[in-house]
């Protein structure tokens, strides 16, 4: 493999990793607060892809993108409202099963509404424009994804560490009951968390699908699981962890595809998961938890 091909592949990997990182943050935020693997997150991401197709059919891209972000946030928040909030005091397994149920429902709904056939993702001329830098050539979206990811992550870190609502989020994730005794409105914080998660999923979906070109009802399930793995790898609840996990996953997968082991590229994710769970079960930056009897 020549050096320029190598860098080309690295660029692809970093770009894929950026999209993964954005989705992984959604998982990590929700898990940090509700201790719930939001199985529906990948499907929210898929629905955002479909929303974009329909928005682009009638609006220019600069209206479509904010519109899609907004609709996706509404979807994410209403899922929390309908499917998770009634189960707040239920055992964790019930909530997880409910999440699997929502994921199943969204996939079936998408199959019903948009048919199982892959639909072409609209081309955004701005994002698709090819740029040449040195020996590398890639579309604008490939360069944009990692940069945008880092900007968003920085903004999010500021939000969580410096603002009042960020402080409330940290309090809720540390101790649910005490936080509510301190006068924090738990439900409002959870809604806010789901809104951020869905917003990032929508951004990730625009970046991811522009590269992939098609959307189908199951196109969210595998990326969803992978991003959850990325979140676990980085240490669930930690945003920098999720980002690093996302990039490692994207690079590793691209490397496997480039070397001709593409059938194992999906399995790679899970090998990574099992390895990290065995070596450091709390992930790279995870906090250690102890069981109380």
């Amino acid at each position: 493999m020549s050096l320029s091909t190598f860098f080309q592949q690295c660029l692809t990997g970093i770009s894929l990793g950026g999209a993964y990182a954005l989705i992984a943050i959604g998982y990590t935020l929700v898990y940090g607060i509700l201790r719930l693997i939001n199985f529906a997150h990948g499907d929210i991401f898929m629905m955002a892809g479909y929303f974009m197709i329909f928005a682009m059919a009638s609006f220019p891209w600069f209206i479509s993108i904010p519109l899609v972000l907004f609709i996706t946030v509404v979807l994410g928040v209403s899922i929390e409202r309908i499917a998770y909030r009634p189960l707040r005091s239920a055992p964790r397994m019930s909530v997880m099963i409910s999440a699997i149920g929502v994921s199943y429902l969204l996939q079936n709904l998408a199959t019903y509404l948009f048919t199982a056939l892959p639909k072409g993702y609209p081309e955004l001329p701005v994002l698709k424009k090819i740029y040449q830098i040195g020996g590398l050539s890639a579309s604008f979206v490939t360069f944009l994804t990692p940069v945008l990811t880092l900007i968003i992550v920085y903004a999010l870190m500021v939000l969580i560490n410096k603002t009042k609502i960020g402080m409330a989020m940290r309090a809720v994730s540390k101790d649910y009951d005490t936080a509510s005794l301190m006068g924090i409105k738990i439900n409002r914080i959870i809604t806010f968390t789901f809104a951020i998660g869905s917003l990032l999923a929508a951004v990730g979906s625009v970046l991811y699908f522009t590269d992939r070109m098609t959307v189908f009802p199951f196109s969210g399930s595998l990326p969803g699981l992978k991003c959850f793995v990325a979140a676990v790898f980085g240490g669930i609840g930690s945003i920098p962890g999720a980002v690093i996990g996302g990039f490692i996953l994207g690079l590793g997968e691209t490397a496997l595809v480039a070397t001709g082991y593409s059938t194992f590229s999906d399995a790679f994710t899970f090998v990574l998961l099992i390895a990290i769970l065995l070596i450091k079960p709390t992930g790279l930056f995870g906090e250690k938890t102890t069981d109380k009897v």
């Binding site: 964790r92 699981l225 793995v229 059938t263 194992f264 899970f270 090998v271 998961l273 099992i274 065995l278």
Partner: peptide
């Protein structure tokens, strides 16, 4: 290795193994 994990970690690790088996 897997049974050392608890609740949702166990779920996701077994799910992962199931996918690995399928890939193999």
């Amino acid at each position: 290795p897997v049974l050392r994990l608890k609740s949702d970690y166990l779920a996701i690790a077994t799910l992962g193994f199931s996918e690995i088996i399928r890939a193999v």
